[in-house]
Design a protein around this nucleic acid. Sequence first.
DNA 1: CTGAAAGCGCTTACAG
DNA 2: CTGAAAGCGCTTACAG
Lengths: 357, 357
Amino acid sequence: MARAPAGEKREKKVGIKDISREAQVSISTVSHVLNGTASISSAVRARVLEVAGRLGYLARRQAKATITALDTILLAVPPDTLPQNNINFVSWTVLSALGRECEKRGIRLLPFPLEGSVASARAIVEAARAGGAQGIILLNVDRRETIDGIAGSGIPAAIINGEDGSMRLDSVTPGNRFAARLATDWLIRQGHRRILHMTWRGRNTIRRRGDGFSDAFAENGLPAEDAVYCYAEGYEPRFGEKAIGEWLKANSGLGDVTAIFCAADNLALGVMRGLQTAGYRIPEDISVMGFDGVAPGEFTSPALTTVHVPLEQMGPAALQLIEQRVTSGIPDRASHRLELGCRLVIRSSVAPGPAAR
Amino acid sequence: MARAPAGEKREKKVGIKDISREAQVSISTVSHVLNGTASISSAVRARVLEVAGRLGYLARRQAKATITALDTILLAVPPDTLPQNNINFVSWTVLSALGRECEKRGIRLLPFPLEGSVASARAIVEAARAGGAQGIILLNVDRRETIDGIAGSGIPAAIINGEDGSMRLDSVTPGNRFAARLATDWLIRQGHRRILHMTWRGRNTIRRRGDGFSDAFAENGLPAEDAVYCYAEGYEPRFGEKAIGEWLKANSGLGDVTAIFCAADNLALGVMRGLQTAGYRIPEDISVMGFDGVAPGEFTSPALTTVHVPLEQMGPAALQLIEQRVTSGIPDRASHRLELGCRLVIRSSVAPGPAAR
DNA sequence: CTGAAAGCGCTTACAG
DNA sequence: CTGAAAGCGCTTACAG
């Protein structure tokens, strides 16, 4: 029940007195600037705000306003995202950043492992109630039954890396469609014309990456047939390796394909291994691009060109959505579906394609 | 420079004293709950938070923390959204709600009309700088050049009802794809099998509604050929009327089509008039569904079944995105693309379709 | 785990 | 447009 004292709690405690000293104005002027209670010259105003921002006063004030409502958050995680499973770097990165943010803010996280694929909404809601949680964060969940149950409970909830098609729960995902479009567009501009998209079935969020892949072909006026799809059995490297091996066999080699855009870095790792095992050189014979921007891609040979997803920001964003819902007090508040922007990380696994030569 | 006194500024001014009275606890207990400075029983804690939320204390505190940084916002609006043009109810609703929110919070809105379709980013940025604006809100903008210029300026900006495919600017849109899917799914479950989607070309956000329309067919295992598209020249009622008239002529009547899903209420207004002029009864002969949930649909005969978009929440959400960007202090903050949830408004322009009979 | 009371930080009429 | 000073609201050690 107690909020963690957070160790170095006594961190200066900046007040408007400090700001007034630093900005060389009176305390009341600072107050007026911060509250808009008097007309202040824009020079003074700007100086005060600059100092207030620099000393961390604004951020502190912001944080204090929201810390209030949140004490405990239930965190429902599928079994394959638990830390002992080191294959899923993506979930691991998301969870550890979320954990750090909660610790910093004195919010208690109540982990709730989802057994198998049967994620009973009732069990989650009961655990949240029993633990006194004010909100629920669901990781990698998009089963309709689970979402329906949580939405029905009325407890504020946010899905990380998943979506609620019925638009009742808040969610945070990477901007999958736009990011995949951007990546594919870049490959096309590098001169690639026939590109293989290595992906897997199952998750809606992953399907969006396929949408973005084909968007890029359409926008560049390229024939849809040159956007080739290949489905692995899952996102683990071994599935990527297996899938590319089988694809090469079925197509008697790469054919006209000069680049492979993988829907996950993990998959790209396996695809690269499979290609190299089959004797292909990367990027000379074939370019490979990933998606996620997790650590391992940096250390492959060659280093993986990929799309960086702001995984560390997903947990804090979900927390913020729950906070907003708790504090807004608007009963009809529309659900928020938030997509975070991604950016290209260009390393060395992609070479210019035939159209560039 | 002066912040608007906002008329009824003296609105109760709820303090922790009020909360303590209402929640039947001492002032210090309220303070402890709100700051997590002592261990409080969860019953008391919950009661205090409930009261604090209900009296608007939490929201007020939240608002106060953010009011600080924002003084002036530049609002760039295309000419066809100006108030004198009463055809665009959607933009009008969005803008007036945004205006009210700014007035309430003492934020000054600096309107900047975009001339014709040439929305020069440089002019917008200059106007923002000259007016001392801390942020820019762009309404209905998705031209690449404009977005590039604004993003390059580094001024925090948010697009309302538009998107930045390069994922640099924040944006707020309705959950167009999911909402259209939900609406179409509902029509299908009402027994409709062959549905006409009346839309128009030009805006990306509108195209998403078409995506959702076809998603619903795919998910229900219905043939894609039964999802019929018809493009009007624009979103005004007269274009809807013209388009349906021409479609009826070209197809010698409705054929197997039993429902028309319009990408905007405005379009639906024209479509209904066109159908009725041609002698069709709504919903007996043909069902019509809209999208937006703006006022006029309520007064048509029959009343229009539609998708309600939380238009009043879009401006405040955009404002919040800008605030977050200003106060967060995170330099690498990922862009936020926010989709607000919509809900079905079932009135009387849709009847059961053939598969339900 | 909760409250009475001291005291600090911030706000606010008011003067210039 | 800015500051000195009164006073209010909230926090915080402390008692039970």
